[in-house]
């Protein structure tokens, strides 16, 4: 269990070693506050959607899931992508309404980032990895939490570095996107070194 969590958070960090959610990672990292908001939103959505998709995959889509209804040959795994993206979009929508009603401060803090998360490939990617690695329900909860925290840590650190870099002299061609890539590369390098230290 702890293994799954640590691997998801550090060793196989979705942003830095699988490049998932890069578009948002690069676009929404100008300020630490917004990056933290987005990271928080991602953790929440990840913890809900990965287990939800796990249940849907096990009880509705995998081969033989409909045996109780007299259809043991039915295999709906090809509907996985549509089902998962539907769940993610629906979850984000429900979460948005729920937060608006019960935790308005959090809703205001997350703002525009909540709907944007629907098309963040870190979410769909985590669900797909969960299926590919055959995680159980409990493992999928831990995996969702680990990937969420890992991604949030990465974007907050990255935003903090970028805030500092704002006052430095960068060659014209590297301004903006170019330097962002190089920084992410260095972060990824550091992370894989850290992961190597902890590897059993």
């Amino acid at each position: 269990m702890i293994d799954v969590f640590l691997t998801a958070m550090i060793g196989e960090n979705l942003a830095l070693s699988f490049f998932l959610g890069m578009c948002t990672f690069l676009a929404v990292s100008q300020r630490v506050e917004t990056a933290a908001g987005l990271g928080l939103a991602l953790i929440v959505v990840q913890v809900i959607t990965v287990p939800a998709n796990n249940l849907i995959h096990t009880y509705l889509l995998s081969e033989g899931a409909w045996a109780w209804a007299g259809m043991p040959e039915l295999d709906l795994t090809h509907l996985r992508l549509i089902a998962f993206i539907g769940v993610i979009a629906a979850m984000v929508q429900i979460l948005e309404m729920g937060l608006d009603r019960f935790a308005p401060w959090l809703y205001r803090a997350l703002g525009i980032f909540l709907p944007l998360i629907t098309v963040n490939c870190a979410i769909l990617g985590a669900s797909l990895f969960m299926v590919e690695r055959r995680y159980t329900f409990a493992e999928s909860v831990v995996y969702g939490l680990g990937t969420g925290i890992g991604w949030a840590l990465a974007i907050v650190t990255f935003a903090a570095i970028r805030e500092r870099l704002r006052y430095s002299l960068i060659p014209a061609g590297l301004q903006g996107l170019g330097s962002a890539f190089l920084i992410t590369g260095l972060m990824s390098l550091g992370l894989s070194a850290a992961a190597g230290l902890g590897a059993p």
Binding site: G173, G176, L182, G185
Partner: peptide, 27 residues
């Protein structure tokens, strides 16, 4: 490994923007 992909793309962007200066972002 993963870091190299970031470095190569970053350097590629640098090269491209050195060639086409109109793409340079204003600080």
């Amino acid at each position: 490994r993963a870091p190299a992909a970031f470095f190569i793309l970053g350097l590629l962007i640098w090269a491209l923007r050195a060639w086409r200066p109109t793409q340079v972002e204003t600080p």
